[in-house]
């Protein structure tokens, strides 16, 4: 990919779009999802591209209002890409409106899957792990680190992504998707994520069993026996029972209710 040089005017416009690409969830609703975010992000660019073409401008705004939904970070990349395509559409007429819409729709799914797993399942868990460790000792630095690890990089990436989407445009998409590395990348991020989930399950989930068996003179603490087989075995069993319930389509709200019932009934009959 050759280096693209932007003119001073383009740079000014770029800065505007980069800042506005933070408005992803603008007036978000179940019908449009992030469509208003897309319109707000692209508005300065569309005004510039279609400044002497009111009919084209109207069509471009209508395109930006189509249902759109992905993670907030790749949103910026796609916005930059749409900007490049809209410009191409107006200047050379090589990209038609239909293509812009279908590329947007095609990118929604894979980018959402990839960045949800990268940010929600990996970076957020790492940031929370680091933050919880410090905060549980009463250190406010944990909160600061959480924001620095999980929040701030999103903005930095957004700035890079709008620029990337705009300058490298379609060629970039082809490169990434044809290289076949996307699947490997998602896999690596998931591995890191699940290792962290396992680690935090071990340190946080516990089933506080208080049951003791009295056999003659000796009393056996059942919880200790189970933990000597495998530390926290009951917690792991509970977790995987929940996982299987979730896989069967049980809603998380029900799991919360089930847990409350287990806790209360268990305490009533003297399990805990």
């Amino acid at each position: 990919m050759e280096k693209v040089v932007l003119s001073a005017e383009e740079k000014k416009l770029l800065r505007k779009v980069q800042l506005r690409s933070h408005l992803v969830f603008m007036a978000a609703n179940m019908v449009q999802m992030e469509a208003n975010g897309m319109t707000h992000t692209l508005a300065p660019a569309l005004e510039e591209i279609y400044k002497d073409d009111p009919e084209g401008k109207k069509e471009a705004y209508a395109r930006s209002q189509q249902f759109f939904n992905t993670h907030a970070v790749p949103f910026s990349f796609i916005a930059g890409l749409v900007w490049a395509m809209e410009k191409e559409h107006k200047e050379n007429n090589s990209v038609d409106g239909q293509t812009i819409e279908s590329i947007k729709a095609a990118l929604m799914g894979p980018t959402a899957g990839m960045f949800d797993s990268l940010f929600f399942n990996c970076l957020r868990i790492i940031a929370a792990g680091v933050g919880i460790g410090l905060c549980s000792q009463g250190n406010i630095l944990g909160t600061v680190l959480f924001i620095l690890i999980y929040g701030v990089p999103q903005s930095i990436l957004k700035f890079i992504f709008v620029r990337m989407g705009y300058t490298y445009g379609t060629s970039f998409i082809e490169m990434v998707f044809n290289s076949g590395l996307m699947a490997s990348f998602t896999k690596a991020a998931s591995i890191l994520g699940i290792i962290m989930v396992g680690a935090m399950t071990a340190s946080m989930v516990s089933v506080p069993l208080a049951l003791t068996l009295n056999i003659g003179d000796t009393s056996v603490v059942i919880g200790d026996v189970i933990n000597s087989i495998f530390p926290g075995l009951l917690g792991v069993c509970l977790l995987f029972w929940y996982v299987s319930l979730i896989r069967k389509g049980v809603r998380p709200t029900w799991l919360i209710v089930i847990t409350l019932v287990i806790g209360l009934v268990g305490a009533l009959i003297g399990l805990f």
């Binding site: 998931s190 989930v197 399950t201 989930v205 509970l238 996982v243 979730i246 896989r247 919360i256 847990t259």
Partner: peptide, 11 residues
């Protein structure tokens, strides 16, 4: 365990 189960089921 509920929260971790949601994450585990997803990943």
């Amino acid at each position: 365990a509920v929260g971790f189960a949601i994450l585990t089921a997803m990943i």
